[in-house]
Amino acid sequence: MPTLLIIGAGSRVGQATAEAFANVGYKVAVASRTARLDPKFKHFVFDATKPETVPGLFKEVRKIVGIPSVVIYNAYAAHITKPEDPFETPIDQFHSSMNVNTTSPWVAAGESVKGFEDLGTEGLGAEGGTFIYTGNILNITVSPGFSTFGMGKIATSHLIQHLALVSYLDKPYKFYWGDQRLSDGQPLATGLSGPAHAELYLELAKDPKQRAWMQTFVKGQGYVVFPRQESWYPSS
């Protein structure tokens, strides 16, 4: 049985995704500071502000559940500042946000690849290995108050793009950025759909080929390509 690891497993995207993968035969491990999912999914205590603990998390998951062939990084830190004062963030808060949004994902992607290599072609099967980062529109746009949040997102977006298009072209490994949108291409300020994420993420994991690394998608429609948007001002 293949193994899925969800890092940052909450009651919406995490729960729906865990259920979807379990229903098709995956063993599911979930990692977060507190257990919020059905106890049938093995929970590992993990704090994404501490990237140095990521290798230990993967070691424990390997030992207790199995080597993950699919890893979904769903944790985030949405620190918000005054739009007119992007430098008000204390440096320790800045470091904490960057750890959650960029440094821990960087380490997790590296640990995922180590797992893919250890599983090998036979262990990965025809579907290969998959790493998915739950992102948003901030990798291609700016929005008032989201300077720090956006900096972390765009850095990790570059990582995903590089892994997908440069680093592992000759390997059966896939890397994705997931970004749910409204049907007109605008971001969802609230109301992300767990089932929509689960449906797309399972589809990406099952496809042995790398699709477009930036997976902008709409509930009920799946992957949709939208024009680049330079700025977004949320309605009050």
Rank of each mutant, 00 (worst) to 15 (best):
133 Y>V: 15
211 R>Q: 15
95 H>T: 15
197 H>P: 02
85 D>W: 09
217 F>K: 13
228 R>A: 10
179 D>M: 13
154 I>D: 02
67 I>T: 15
231 S>P: 04
114 K>L: 11
100 V>P: 10
79 H>F: 10
12 R>L: 06
63 K>H: 13
84 E>P: 08
46 F>R: 02
217 F>M: 12
45 V>D: 10
200 L>C: 12
171 K>R: 09
90 P>C: 09
104 S>C: 10
125 G>R: 11
189 A>R: 07
1 M>F: 05
199 E>V: 05
215 Q>C: 05
137 I>A: 09
4 L>A: 03
158 H>A: 04
226 F>T: 12
235 S>V: 13
11 S>Q: 05
105 P>D: 11
148 T>L: 14
227 P>F: 08
83 P>D: 09
225 V>K: 15
95 H>S: 11
230 E>D: 07
41 F>K: 05
61 V>M: 05
103 T>E: 13
233 Y>C: 08
159 L>F: 11
43 H>T: 00
222 G>E: 11
202 L>G: 07
31 A>D: 05
193 S>V: 12
203 E>N: 08
109 A>H: 04
122 E>T: 13
10 G>S: 02
110 G>V: 00
18 A>N: 10
39 P>K: 06
80 I>Q: 09
230 E>P: 07
55 P>C: 04
200 L>G: 11
103 T>D: 03
81 T>R: 07
79 H>C: 06
97 S>E: 07
215 Q>M: 06
187 P>L: 03
184 D>Q: 03
212 A>G: 12
117 E>C: 00
89 T>H: 01
101 N>T: 06
141 T>V: 14
217 F>I: 12
78 A>P: 03
74 N>Q: 10
48 A>W: 12
203 E>P: 07
128 G>F: 00
235 S>L: 10
199 E>K: 01
164 A>K: 00
100 V>R: 05
86 P>M: 15
29 A>Y: 09
77 A>H: 04
167 S>L: 11
228 R>C: 06
228 R>L: 14
38 D>H: 01
6 I>M: 01
31 A>Y: 04
73 Y>D: 03
166 V>M: 09
234 P>Q: 13
59 K>E: 14
101 N>S: 00
63 K>C: 09
181 R>Q: 14
102 T>P: 01
169 L>S: 14
199 E>G: 07
48 A>Y: 12
163 L>G: 10
79 H>K: 10
126 A>N: 14
63 K>E: 13
